[in-house]
Amino acid sequence: MHYAYVPYSSYPVGAAALVDDGRIVSGANIENASFGVTLCAECSLVSDLFMSGGGRLVAFDCVDGAGQTLVPCGRCRQLLFEHGGNDLMLNMPSGKVPMSVVLPEAFGPDHLSSDAQGAGPAKH
């Protein structure tokens, strides 16, 4: 969270995760005057994941400026699921829980495979 850029909200958020190869990746929220393009800490964490070699997330925590654990929003839960799956352990205010509890029956890459749909992606 020390690298957060928060000139508008003054609400720094930091995120860190353990990768399956033992690396730690991190992120911080990066605000923008056009609030809709602000990046959350989880987004910059996933960018760090790929910029440092990729892999799967296995454990995750996100905190505010006072070090209090935060709950990822729905968008961020989806982002974390994509890169950690059901077994990703999240530190939540209530304790450590797997992604399968935080985002039950999640939609993911497997739903887009041609095998999962029979005849391939739906055409609109």
Rank of each mutant, 00 (worst) to 15 (best):
L112H: 04
Q78A: 15
M99F: 00
A28P: 08
D20F: 04
A4Y: 09
S44D: 10
M99P: 01
G85C: 03
G22W: 02
M1P: 12
V63M: 10
A28W: 15
N91S: 15
G55R: 11
R56K: 12
C76P: 13
P98Q: 07
D110R: 11
G74C: 07
L39M: 14
G53R: 07
P109S: 11
A119D: 11
R56W: 08
A122D: 08
A28L: 05
R77G: 08
Y3K: 13
V25P: 00
V102T: 13
G108W: 09
Q68V: 13
Q78D: 13
D21G: 10
P93Y: 13
I24H: 10
S10C: 12
E42L: 01
M92Q: 02
I24F: 14
Q117V: 09
V37D: 05
S47K: 07
L80H: 02
A116D: 06
G14L: 01
Q117D: 07
H83A: 05
D87L: 04
P109G: 11
D61L: 14
L90T: 01
Q117R: 15
P7S: 03
A17H: 01
T38W: 01
G120P: 05
V58F: 00
S114M: 08
V6Q: 10
A41G: 02
V63G: 07
S114A: 14
D48R: 04
Q117C: 10
M1C: 06
M51A: 14
G22P: 11
P12L: 03
I24D: 02
P7M: 02
S100D: 07
Y11C: 12
D20M: 00
L80K: 10
A17L: 02
G118H: 06
P121F: 12
D64T: 05
G22N: 05
G74N: 13
Q68N: 14
G108Y: 04
N86L: 01
H124M: 12
G27I: 07
G118S: 11
S10F: 12
R56V: 05
E105A: 15
D64S: 07
V71R: 15
G55C: 03
D21V: 05
A17P: 00
P109H: 12
D48H: 14
V25H: 01
G65A: 06
K96A: 12
C73L: 10
I30N: 02
N29H: 06
P109N: 07
V13Q: 10
G118C: 08
M1T: 03
D21H: 06
G84Y: 06
L57Q: 00
Y5E: 10
M1S: 14
E42H: 03
T69Q: 03
D64A: 01
L79T: 11
C43V: 11
V71G: 02
